[in-house]
C-alpha cells in the first residue's frame, strides 16, 4: 500500500486534495448536465414504461453510489483497523453522509417510479427492504461515528460497525436473484446489459458524473474536518 502510505501525511494529502476537488466537481457537473440533457431529450421512451423509464438515469447511479459509499466506509474501516491509517477515520466519516443521501435518493426515485409502473409506492419485497436497511445502517453509523469523535475516540468502534455492515451489500445485490421480488432482476451484469443501447448510453454519463461529484464532496468534507481538527488543536494550545 505505498500509495496509501504516501497519503498518510495530512499535509501531503491536502496538497493533492486541494487542486483535485474543483477538477472532480466541475467534470462531474459537466457530465451530469450532458447526461441529463441526453436522458431527457435524445433517448426513446421504453416500450412498456413510457417516459418514466428516464428516472433510471438518477435511480441507478444513486443505488450504486449508496452501496459504493458503504464499500468506502468498509475500506476505510479496514485500513484503520489494520494499518492505523491516520486519515481513515476522517475518510469514513466524509463518505457516510453523501452515501446516505444517495441511498435515500435511490429509495425516493424508486418509489416515484414504482407508483406508475407497479401500481404501488412501496412494497416490502427483498430488494426494497434490504436497501431501506442500508439507509438505516448509514444513519446509525453516522450517529455512532459522531459520538465516538466527540468523546475523543480513535474511530475503532465505528470501524468495526462499518466492516460488519458490509454483510448487507451482497444481500442487496443478490436479493433479486435469491428471492422472488417485485423488483426486477439485474439489468446490467458482467456479461452485458438487457437495457437496449439506445436507452442505456446516457446512464454511463450520469453514473460517472454522480461518482465524480461524490468524490468531490468527500474531498471537501475531509478538508473541512482536517481544518476543524487543526483549529481545535490551535485553540487548545492557545488556552494552555
Amino acid at each position: 500500500m505505498p500509495a496509501l502510505h504516501a497519503l498518510a501525511n495530512p499535509t501531503r494529502f491536502l496538497s493533492i486534495a486541494r487542486p483535485l476537488t474543483p477538477v472532480l466537481l466541475w467534470a462531474g457537473l459537466l457530465l451530469l448536465a450532458v447526461g441529463a440533457w441526453a436522458g431527457l431529450t435524445l433517448t426513446p421512451p421504453d416500450y412498456l414504461q413510457g417516459e418514466s423509464v428516464r428516472i433510471l438515469y438518477v435511480h441507478v447511479p444513486s443505488a450504486w453510489l449508496g452501496m459504493g459509499g458503504w464499500t468506502g466506509i468498509a475500506l476505510a474501516s479496514f485500513s484503520l483497523l489494520v494499518w492505523r491509517h491516520p486519515l481513515a477515520a476522517i475518510a469514513a466519516r466524509a463518505v457516510a453522509l453523501p452515501g446516505a443521501v444517495f441511498a435515500a435518493l435511490c429509495l425516493i426515485t424508486g418509489s416515484i417510479w414504482g407508483r406508475p409502473t407497479w401500481g404501488t409506492w412501496w412494497e416490502w419485497d427483498g430488494r426494497l427492504t434490504s436497501m431501506l436497511l442500508l439507509f438505516f445502517l448509514y444513519l446509525a453509523w453516522i450517529g455512532l461515528a459522531r459520538a465516538d469523535a466527540e468523546r475523543g475516540g480513535d474511530g475503532r468502534i465505528p470501524a468495526i460497525f462499518g466492516l460488519a455492515g458490509t454483510a448487507l451489500l451482497p444481500v442487496i445485490r443478490y436479493s433479486v436473484v435469491w428471492w422472488r421480488t417485485l423488483h426486477q432482476g439485474p439489468s446490467i451484469t458482467v456479461s452485458g446489459s438487457s437495457i437496449d443501447g439506445s436507452i442505456l448510453w446516457p446512464l454511463w454519463l450520469t453514473l460517472t458524473g454522480f461518482s465524480l461529484v461524490f468524490g468531490a464532496i468527500v474531498l471537501m468534507r475531509m478538508r473541512a474536518m482536517l481544518a476543524q481538527q487543526r483549529l481545535e488543536a490551535r485553540m487548545r494550545r492557545m488556552a494552555a
Partner: peptide
C-alpha cells in the same frame, strides 16, 4: 383484491418490441 404489475429487467424503445 389488488393487482401489481411486475416489470422485467429489459428496457427497449417501442419499435423493438
Amino acid at each position: 383484491d389488488n393487482l401489481l404489475a411486475k416489470h422485467d429487467e429489459r428496457y427497449m424503445p417501442p419499435q423493438l418490441e
